[in-house]
């Protein structure tokens, strides 16, 4: 597949290609007049075509990883990230590149009318090149999405592990969300650290906000309990919902070594009793 004529064609009919390409984009499947202004679209298209022409002049159209293509790829990456933020779907973003095929190939056909063999050869080369560039937008799109997910996960990790002091010698850890190994180790560390800082003998781990408890999560919980015990603090697990209690028994998870309570209130009551406190209701004496 050769694309020897591509730079020449671009040079000769750039204005016409741009015109048809922009028209194509505004009317075609990927058109999103609600998201991008016509002027902006034209500007981006023109910029891309300029870079594309410069890169194509290097003659290396088989491999877009070569340095000659770097500016074009960079521009594509910028445009893709921008469009992702604007709300374009991945296929709409890829269509930006793919829609260039039709006007470009029309020019090739017109240019090489006398030599059909060469026209087919040239078309195939251009088509393969644009396919690669189109797929590159998808790659960038996905990478930027993954970046967002990763950042959110990190934020979640930091937000979701508060250890609160309930009373002298009692701390509580309300767990919210799914527990995985990474989160559990953060949770475990911050709980143990707080136990040392506050000199607490009792830690209440509340799992009301944990949607599912499987064997792995239970194992993580038991590890935390064992580590706290080694330091000299007792753990009470509270907030086990009825469905979760059923699942745990079906999975043969043995929690007999740990004190478990249905609610945080019950757990606090037990903790207060163990530390020698008593909660008494005020009796109002009637005159």
């Amino acid at each position: 597949m050769s694309t020897i004529r591509l730079p020449e064609i671009l040079q000769k009919a750039k204005a016409q290609i741009l015109e048809e390409w922009v028209k194509q984009q505004m009317s075609g499947a990927g058109a999103r007049a609600d998201l991008i202004k016509d002027g902006e679209l034209r500007k981006q298209s023109e910029e891309f075509l300029n870079n594309f022409q410069r890169s194509a002049q290097s003659g290396e159209t088989e491999n877009i990883q070569l340095p000659a293509w770097a500016p074009t790829l960079e521009l594509i990456a910028d445009l893709t990230r921008q469009r992702e933020r604007m709300g374009f779907s991945p296929s709409e973003t890829a269509l930006f590149i793919f829609s260039l095929k039709e006007p470009l190939l029309a020019q090739v056909r017109a240019e090489l009318k006398k030599d059909p063999e060469a026209a087919i050869e040239e078309s195939m080369g251009i088509s393969a090149l644009l396919d690669k560039l189109g797929l590159y937008t998808t790659e960038i799109y996905q990478a930027s999405r993954e970046e967002v997910i990763r950042r959110q996960q990190e934020e979640l990790l930091e937000l979701s592990t508060p250890v609160v002091k309930m009373w002298d010698g009692i701390v509580a850890l309300p767990l919210i969300g799914t527990l995985d190994s990474a989160r559990t180790s953060v949770v475990m560390e911050s709980l143990l650290q707080r136990i040392v800082e506050t000199g607490s003998e009792i830690a209440i781990i509340d799992i009301t906000g944990v949607p599912t408890v499987d064997t792995l999560v239970a194992q993580h919980l038991l590890k935390t309990v064992a580590a706290a015990r080694l330091m000299g603090a007792d753990c009470i697990i509270s907030g086990i919902r009825p469905q979760i209690a059923q699942t745990m028994v079906h999975l043969a998870i043995d929690l007999s070594a740990v004190t478990t309570k249905a609610t945080m209130a019950e757990a606090l009551k037990t903790a207060l009793a163990r530390t020698g406190h008593r909660v008494v209701k005020d009796v109002v004496l009637k005159a």
Binding site: S185, M188, I195, K223, A227
Partner: peptide, 15 residues
């Protein structure tokens, strides 16, 4: 009675 175990030590032992 073993007293004053550091958090890191406790985690290591459990692991």
């Amino acid at each position: 009675v073993v007293v004053g175990m550091q958090p890191a030590v406790a985690i290591t032992l459990v692991e």
